[in-house]
């Protein structure tokens, strides 16, 4: 174990959040090697009495698929992408996912802008650096990033950009914008 700490492998975590159908899975697939990953969802039988003194509560688990991708920057430096499951019943996973996260991309669809409110609230409260990327669907009316910023009541220095998550080049710009924002946040707090 002769490695100096700086030689140790580094793993970073970026989250992709937003409402159902906004393009989270598409974004992760456009930019990274997408990998199958499943987690358990516990469906505990709460209705069947509170008598769990013996610790043998009746629990059923189902597995749910998560969006998971990895980008190898170089040997020993890997960025992991995780899609945050949109539905409310998956809130339990958010704390775990966002712990130690470098930052989050909140995807928005201008036809259903309010869908991204829960994600924005969540990352604001947790202090996780995030950006808003408006996924431009065909046929959806185009808005300027500043209109979206106003509609979502976002901070003036919070990056808002338009993107097409199906395109790798566009997905790349989204991630670069996030990491640049995280870097700015980091240097601001260190000052």
């Amino acid at each position: 174990m002769a490695f100096a700490p700086s030689d140790e492998p580094v793993a970073l975590k970026i989250l992709v959040a937003g409402g159902f159908g906004v393009g989270k899975t598409t974004l992760v697939g456009a930019i990274s090697e997408i990998r199958p990953l499943r987690t358990e969802e516990v469906l505990s039988d709460r209705g069947v009495g509170v008598d769990d003194l013996d610790g043998v509560e009746t629990k059923t688990t189902t597995t749910v698929a998560m969006d998971f991708g990895r980008i190898t920057i170089r040997e020993g430096l890997v960025v992991y992408l995780f899609g945050t499951p949109g539905q409310e019943r998956f809130w339990f996973m958010w704390d775990e996912l966002s712990y130690g996260a470098l930052g989050a991309v909140v995807l928005a669809d201008t036809r259903r802008l309010t869908d991204c409110f829960p994600s924005i609230d969540y990352f604001e409260q947790r202090g996780t650096p995030f950006i808003v990327a408006v996924n431009c669907f065909d046929g959806a009316e185009r808005y300027e990033p500043d209109d979206v910023r106003i509609a979502l009541d976002l901070d003036p220095d919070l990056p808002v950009l338009l993107c097409d998550v199906r395109r790798r080049a566009s997905a790349k710009v989204v991630l670069v914008t996030l990491v640049e924002h995280a870097l700015k946040t980091l240097t601001a707090t260190q000052r």
């Binding site: 580094v10 930019i31 920057i73 430096l77 790349k172 670069v176 995280a182 870097l183 980091l186 240097t187």
Partner: peptide
Amino acid sequence: VRPPAQVAPLPSARILKEVINGLRAL
């Protein structure tokens, strides 16, 4: 086991710049 907090309490500016350049080069 190295938890992320131990791996990178806050990723250093150097690492983040490396990630930015790496992503651009993808």
